[in-house]
């Protein structure tokens, strides 16, 4: 870790101005940023602690539910309204990290956590995301936890957040405020594909802060589940995960579906084609499997992660069936 200066402004405008200065980093819960700094992946000259800003709290609104960016993951997971109307979000949170980490980590920080690609996290190896132009050893190296969708020949790092998978399935909006004023953008548009510049991960401008998330209410959001598959039973990011929300017609067939998968994409990965194909489908393994099969299209697996394509299809079927059981 390199020496840095530190401030904790109470005024959002000051925070934004400070954060816009090159070499500055924003600190929320710090559960990822502190690791990155200790291990030398980030060496900010100035750290802006935003915990003093008024971005914390949960409110049900006409649009849906609004969650402040500084709300802790544990606070959101304990919120009864969220559990009632958007269970997939609570399940994604409960499957994330550990209680200790969730007590500190924030909703905004979670969406902006950096990838778990082993090379990105190791100072001694090349990595285009960490050191632009240095190469991508993950392409033919230890890529068990890397992505099969959305990668480029420069980077195949997964977006590691569980929360983002649940949120992207539910058309969540991200509210931001920056030197150029506030904006609302769909979460689906927050993250960029790596392309030629994997070091640029989001569309956020310098100094732009996430202030809140708005998750619309819907029947599919109410009937939703999160399924997370991994190498151990807890305290690990997803190998593959699936967030599914469905609305059923009177005959018990799918009227509307929301589906996103984690652990497989370079950004939170929604599956709009499958959502379309699911309309009218019966809730049975036999009916769902052929539709899930379509999810493999366009996958570009590597040596160590090819199994994820099949695992993802199975996860989709199980998550949809589980959503069907929500009453």
């Amino acid at each position: 870790m390199q020496p840095f200066s530190y401030s904790s402004p109470a005024d959002p405008r000051v925070a934004m101005a400070e954060a816009a200065v090159p070499g500055a980093e924003v600190l929320a819960g710090g559960t990822d940023m502190m690791q990155l700094m200790k291990e030398g992946q980030r060496s900010p000259r100035h750290v802006v602690d935003i915990n003093g800003l008024p971005y914390r709290g949960i409110a049900v609104t006409a649009e849906g539910i609004r969650i402040g960016a500084l709300t802790r993951l544990s606070e959101a997971a304990e919120d009864q309204a969220l559990r009632q109307g958007w269970p997939v979000v609570v399940e994604a949170l409960e499957a994330s990290a550990s209680p200790q980490v969730r007590n500190l980590a924030t909703m905004g920080g979670n969406l902006l956590q950096r990838t778990r690609c082993l090379y990105f996290r190791d100072w001694a190896t090349p990595c285009n995301k960490r050191q632009p132009g240095s190469g991508c050893p993950a392409l033919d190296g230890q890529n068990r936890n890397n992505a099969v969708f959305g990668g480029s020949d420069r980077c195949i790092a997964t977006h590691a957040s569980d929360l983002a998978v649940a949120l992207v399935a539910l058309d969540t909006l991200v509210l931001t405020e920056g030197p150029n004023g506030p904006r609302r953008l769909p979460l689906a548009d927050l993250h960029r594909l790596p392309g030629d510049s994997p070091q640029v991960e989001t569309v956020l401008q310098p100094g732009e802060l996430i202030t809140a998330l708005v998750i619309p209410a819907s029947a599919a959001a109410r009937r939703s589940r999160y399924l997370k598959l991994r190498d151990r039973a807890s305290f690990e990011w997803a190998l593959v995960s699936a967030a599914a929300g469905i609305d059923l017609d009177t005959g018990g067939n799918i009227r509307e579906a929301r589906l996103a998968v984690g652990g497989v994409g370079t950004k939170p990965w929604r599956l709009p084609r499958i959502e379309q194909a699911l309309i009218g489908a019966r809730l049975s393994p036999e009916a769902l499997r052929p539709v899930a099969e379509l999810a493999g299209e366009g996958a570009r697996p590597r040596n160590g992660n090819a199994f994820k394509v099949e695992l993802m299809k199975r996860a989709i079927v199980r998550a949809l069936l589980a959503a069907g059981e929500v009453t």
């Binding site: 190791d122 190896t125 050893p137 190296g141 230890q142």
Partner: peptide, 10 residues
């Protein structure tokens, strides 16, 4: 898990 090209535990 070794990256055998780098001789490094990843």
């Amino acid at each position: 898990r070794l990256d055998t090209r780098l001789g490094r535990v990843m």
